[in-house]
Design a binder for these strands. Sequence first.
DNA 1: CCAATTGTTCAATAACTGTTGAACTAAGGA
DNA 2: TCCTTAGTTCAACAGTTATTGAACAATTGG
Lengths: 118, 118
Amino acid sequence: MTLPHPNTDQISLPIVLGVLGDPTRLAIVRYLASKEGVPLNCSRFLDLGSKTNLSYHLAKLREAGVTRAEVVGTNRMITLRRTDLDARFPGLLDSVIAAAGDDPALPVVGSHDIDVPA
Amino acid sequence: MTLPHPNTDQISLPIVLGVLGDPTRLAIVRYLASKEGVPLNCSRFLDLGSKTNLSYHLAKLREAGVTRAEVVGTNRMITLRRTDLDARFPGLLDSVIAAAGDDPALPVVGSHDIDVPA
DNA sequence: CCAATTGTTCAATAACTGTTGAACTAAGGA
DNA sequence: TCCTTAGTTCAACAGTTATTGAACAATTGG
């Protein structure tokens, strides 16, 4: 009942870069990074596309080794494989997330989230 | 007779990542980084593919803002746009080059150079 | 059990990508 | 001038990618 993930040492640089070379997936990664530690289910990303389309993009990210998906009931809890990526490609994820962080051209997840004042 | 290049602020993160998500182009960038400062003409990369194919990949890199191509006679002198990329996406190029630096899966430029280990 | 929720799989499709060979342009040197 | 060198452009092609709706599977709650 677990989903296939590459081992850390199987993660390929060109594949990771290719997978990140898509605005939808970059937006997913940016959102995951902003909620690090919090496992999110797929529906969290529905702002970015249809259910089917998200399933496709999340599978790409998982197969590339960028994300991990854990099956919990009917949910797949998605997390960034930060530790693994940092070990394999030091600094890469940080610089990508920083660059994506203020890119207004990327689509946004949770634009209608409730703004919680401090 | 100058070739079109994007301005620094026009360089797009997903486009750069997408362009780097190809082994041939990563090999080109890795080689350019290893010869930084030295302008190289296109023929330098013929190990990686046919003349036509190289023209295609080098155009992709140039249009994405990763490389600069200067016309000098019948040659195009290719350089990495390191300063521009560092300004736009701090740390990104360094981490990509470092990650590519020891990737045995990438094709190699200049395998006939003085490269032979004892 | 039944129904709702969560997400995947499938087939179809349109668009894009990488690769090729032939033909082309442009500059430089004999 | 003619030939060579350096590189581009073009049309064609096979393969891949992103997207969609319909159908499917699995789990959970009533």
